[in-house]
């Protein structure tokens, strides 16, 4: 399994909100230790697709899924799969920073504590290494017991990243993580994401095509619930194979 280069494999995936089909026949392999960017106009299904990868859409009533999603070879929608277990293995960073109204320490320790890690020493270690990985440690190491809400927006988002990294996830999902941030915070997050690919598989939804071009190895273009085109980022942005992709990246719609 470890030899299989794909962290995520999506096979003939169809997804419905009630009667409305949101995703149509998606097939996609996502390679380990790469950054994959999902792009496309609003409502194209890219965020829906992202949220299927950690079963966040389970929280919505009246949804239906056909097809398979394999996480390191395991079918995450198999009857015996537990959504809590899947989400433990797949980290997520959201569009808006959403730290818990708790201390910085407790935000990062939240996940490990959920899963039964109680000893102070172990928690301290996890919190420090996660905050370092999110490049936040130097800024907050003296204020670990201050409220997370006292941080700036960019810091909050890096805290949310640290919170996700504390679980040592197999895959890290990011849903437009910089859309609510200023340019400086955005570039910090982008640098971080590029560092992270050494140890993590990152899938990032973005509205910002420059961002996708800057940081990703692979790019997938979604349109009207379909995966139109996927491939190496260089190729997608320079030599798109499909007319729709070309129209989108050259700014003719979106």
């Amino acid at each position: 399994m470890v030899n299989d280069p794909n962290a995520v494999e999506v096979k003939t995936l169809n997804f419905f909100y009630g009667e409305k089909q949101a995703l149509k026949n998606i097939n996609l392999d996502i390679k380990r230790n790469e950054i994959t960017a999902l792009i496309g106009p609003s409502g194209c299904g890219k965020s829906t697709f992202l949220r299927l990868l950690n079963r966040m859409n389970d929280l919505i009533a009246g949804v239906r899924l056909e097809g398979k999603i394999l996480l390191n070879g395991m079918d995450i929608y198999a009857p015996e799969a537990e959504s809590a277990d899947i989400r433990r293995r797949v980290g997520m960073v959201f569009q808006k920073p959403n730290p818990f109204p708790k201390s910085i320490f407790n935000n990062v320790a939240y996940g490990p504590m959920l899963h039964g890690i109680k000893n102070k020493h172990g928690l301290n270690r996890i919190v420090e290494s996660s905050l370092r990985a999110a490049a936040l440690w130097e800024e907050v190491k003296d204020d670990l017991h201050k409220s997370a809400l006292s941080l700036s927006g960019g810091q909050q988002q890096r805290l949310c990243l640290a919170r996700a990294l504390a679980m040592e996830p197999e895959v890290l999902l990011m849903d437009e993580p910089t859309s609510a941030l200023d340019p400086i915070s955005t570039s910090k997050i982008e640098e971080l994401v590029m560092d992270l690919k050494n140890s993590y598989t990152v899938i990032i939804v973005t509205h910002n095509m420059q961002q996708a071009a800057r940081i990703s190895d692979k790019t997938c273009f979604f349109y009207m619930g379909e995966l139109i085109e996927s491939g190496a980022t260089d190729q997608i942005f320079t030599l798109p194979q499909q007319r729709q992709t070309e129209n989108y990246i050259t700014g003719r719609f979106g």
């Binding site: 537990e82 809590a84 277990d85 433990r88 996940g111 899963h115 679980m167």
Partner: peptide, 11 residues
């Protein structure tokens, strides 16, 4: 991170 207590949490 291991899922050692998943069953217990579910119950």
């Amino acid at each position: 991170m291991k899922a050692n207590n998943l069953k217990k949490r579910k119950y």
